[in-house]
Measured scan of single mutants.
Amino acid sequence: GTVKVQGITIKVPNPDKAYKIAKKLAKKYNLTVTRKGNTIKVE
């Protein structure tokens, strides 16, 4: 899958794990995490 952070896309082998990490970071930096299948977008 991929993770998008402010325009940066990161390929990740485990979208579930990445999503959990993204959620933690999002809370810390007051961002929104959206997930569509293997693509995770943080904005």
Score class of each variant (00 low, 15 high):
residue 38 N to D: 07
residue 16 D to S: 06
residue 23 K to T: 10
residue 24 K to D: 07
residue 18 A to I: 13
residue 15 P to W: 14
residue 11 K to N: 10
residue 34 T to W: 07
residue 27 K to N: 09
residue 18 A to Y: 11
residue 36 K to T: 12
residue 39 T to N: 08
residue 6 Q to R: 14
residue 37 G to P: 00
residue 1 G to Y: 11
residue 35 R to C: 07
residue 23 K to I: 13
residue 4 K to I: 15
residue 23 K to Q: 12
residue 28 K to E: 09
residue 34 T to V: 08
residue 9 T to L: 10
residue 12 V to H: 06
residue 17 K to F: 14
residue 11 K to D: 08
residue 6 Q to E: 09
residue 30 N to G: 13
residue 26 A to T: 03
residue 43 E to F: 13
residue 27 K to L: 09
residue 18 A to W: 14
residue 15 P to K: 07
residue 24 K to T: 08
residue 9 T to R: 06
residue 2 T to F: 15
residue 11 K to T: 11
residue 14 N to A: 03
residue 27 K to P: 09
residue 15 P to R: 07
residue 25 L to V: 04
residue 39 T to L: 11
residue 2 T to P: 05
residue 10 I to Y: 06
residue 29 Y to P: 01
residue 15 P to N: 06
residue 11 K to P: 09
residue 39 T to G: 02
residue 13 P to V: 11
residue 34 T to P: 00
residue 38 N to V: 03
residue 24 K to S: 12
residue 10 I to V: 10
residue 14 N to K: 02
residue 29 Y to E: 04
residue 43 E to M: 10
residue 11 K to H: 13
residue 19 Y to H: 07
residue 21 I to K: 03
residue 41 K to P: 00
residue 16 D to N: 09
residue 42 V to K: 01
residue 26 A to W: 06
residue 15 P to I: 15
residue 33 V to F: 00
residue 5 V to K: 06
residue 18 A to S: 02
residue 31 L to K: 05
residue 24 K to Q: 12
residue 9 T to M: 11
residue 33 V to Y: 00
residue 38 N to H: 04
residue 41 K to W: 15
residue 23 K to M: 13
residue 13 P to E: 09
residue 12 V to F: 10
residue 36 K to A: 10
residue 29 Y to D: 02
residue 20 K to E: 14
residue 22 A to L: 15
residue 27 K to S: 07
residue 9 T to Q: 06
residue 22 A to K: 00
residue 3 V to I: 11
residue 23 K to L: 14
residue 12 V to M: 06
residue 21 I to R: 03
residue 35 R to H: 03
residue 25 L to Q: 01
residue 3 V to Q: 08
residue 41 K to R: 10
residue 37 G to C: 02
residue 7 G to N: 07
residue 37 G to A: 04
residue 24 K to F: 13
residue 41 K to Y: 15
residue 31 L to M: 08
residue 39 T to D: 11
residue 42 V to A: 02
residue 6 Q to I: 12
residue 29 Y to K: 04
residue 10 I to K: 03
residue 25 L to S: 00
residue 11 K to Y: 14
residue 4 K to W: 14
residue 30 N to F: 12
residue 36 K to C: 13
residue 17 K to D: 11
residue 4 K to T: 14
residue 33 V to H: 00
residue 25 L to R: 01
residue 29 Y to A: 04
residue 39 T to R: 05
residue 14 N to W: 12
residue 19 Y to D: 03
residue 3 V to D: 03
residue 22 A to E: 00
residue 3 V to T: 04
residue 24 K to E: 10
residue 3 V to H: 06
residue 14 N to M: 11
residue 30 N to R: 07
residue 5 V to S: 05
residue 25 L to T: 00
residue 34 T to Y: 02
residue 11 K to G: 08
residue 20 K to V: 11
residue 19 Y to N: 03
residue 36 K to G: 02
residue 37 G to V: 01
residue 40 I to T: 01
residue 37 G to K: 03
residue 22 A to N: 00
residue 22 A to V: 13
residue 14 N to T: 04
residue 42 V to I: 15
residue 32 T to D: 02
residue 9 T to N: 06
residue 16 D to A: 06
residue 24 K to Y: 13
residue 4 K to Y: 12
residue 37 G to Q: 03
residue 26 A to Y: 05
residue 30 N to V: 03
residue 33 V to W: 00
residue 41 K to Q: 11
residue 22 A to H: 01
residue 36 K to V: 14
residue 41 K to I: 15
residue 2 T to H: 09
residue 26 A to F: 09
residue 1 G to M: 11
residue 34 T to K: 08
residue 21 I to T: 04
residue 34 T to A: 04
residue 42 V to R: 01
residue 15 P to Q: 05
residue 36 K to H: 12
residue 2 T to N: 07
residue 27 K to H: 07
residue 27 K to W: 05
residue 13 P to F: 11
residue 13 P to G: 12
residue 11 K to V: 12
residue 40 I to Y: 04
residue 41 K to D: 06
residue 6 Q to S: 11
residue 28 K to V: 12
residue 33 V to L: 04
residue 25 L to A: 01
residue 4 K to E: 14
residue 4 K to G: 04
residue 29 Y to I: 07
residue 23 K to F: 04
residue 35 R to Y: 03
residue 12 V to D: 02
residue 27 K to I: 12
residue 20 K to R: 10
residue 21 I to V: 09
residue 19 Y to T: 03
residue 18 A to V: 10
residue 34 T to Q: 03
residue 5 V to W: 15
residue 17 K to W: 14
residue 20 K to A: 13
residue 19 Y to A: 06
residue 13 P to W: 14
residue 38 N to P: 02
residue 39 T to Y: 09
residue 16 D to F: 08
residue 27 K to C: 04
residue 42 V to D: 00
residue 23 K to V: 13
residue 3 V to F: 03
residue 5 V to D: 03
residue 30 N to W: 11
residue 2 T to C: 15
residue 33 V to T: 01
residue 29 Y to R: 03
residue 19 Y to P: 01
residue 1 G to N: 05
residue 7 G to V: 10
residue 25 L to K: 01
residue 3 V to P: 05
